[in-house]
Nucleic acid binder design. Structure first.
Lengths: 109, 109
DNA sequence: ATGGTAATATACCAATAGGTTAAATAACCA
DNA sequence: TGGTTATTTAACCTATTGGTATATTACCAT
């Protein structure tokens, strides 16, 4: 099913380095070396993160001379968004409750 | 910041058992034993999943005689949703490209 | 050919995740 | 008091994760 796809997507998003890489790619293609620059991390570590992202379908790789540029592939995020969105009413509810509580406090004063 | 919160939220969502537990809790509070029923898994395993969910703030626990009921807490999903939503335009773009491509195919026939 | 640059592969390590069994705790019931 | 039910803790296991250092591959330029 797409359950495994969600597994991979959410797991990929659970790491701040990987989220930052996606953010960077939102402003355009990038080489691995460029992507690595903001991080205090060796290249192989970045390569591994890229594999995780690629495995989740969140990036794709190109080939250009000795560079293998990365590009954002946002499609899996759509599924993730849809999954999360099923719960929208629940978090809106809880903010309603919070609102009500704050209102109540205000009236007491 | 909330980066760690996102780490925990996404990591919690990366497991199908935990997503199923949240889905179950969407229809109301539940005891641990009830939650465990659909799974081929021992109770301690479920307890661990619940700890992960609780650590991410996705559930809260009550106390009622010998039961410790779980309740959905959707607030962290709001942040997750907002994070993902930054990429909405990218997946919509790629569907636009797909649409264009399918349109092109159709015209060729 | 040789050397520099980009990236990956390989081998290793420590910490974490996800599961188990068995024992412990806690609250009810009789 | 003792027994039953609900849940957690503890100890353990294996696989995965996230990182390292080092070696290797691939391409380009001279």
């Amino acid at each position: 099913m797409q359950a495994q796809q969600l597994d991979r997507t959410f797991a990929a998003l659970a790491d701040p380095t990987r989220r930052a890489i996606l953010a960077r790619l939102a402003s355009g293609e990038s080489s691995v070396t460029e992507l690595a620059k903001p991080f205090q991390m060796t290249m192989p570590a970045i390569t591994k993160h890229l594999k995780v992202l690629e495995g989740a379908g969140l990036i794709s790789r190109g080939k250009e001379a000795q560079w293998r540029p990365c590009r954002l592939e946002a499609a899996p995020l759509k599924e993730a968004s849809e999954w999360v969105d099923h719960y929208r009413k629940y978090w809106e509810e809880s903010f309603d409750r919070l609102d009500a509580y704050l209102q109540e406090l205000k009236e007491k004063r």
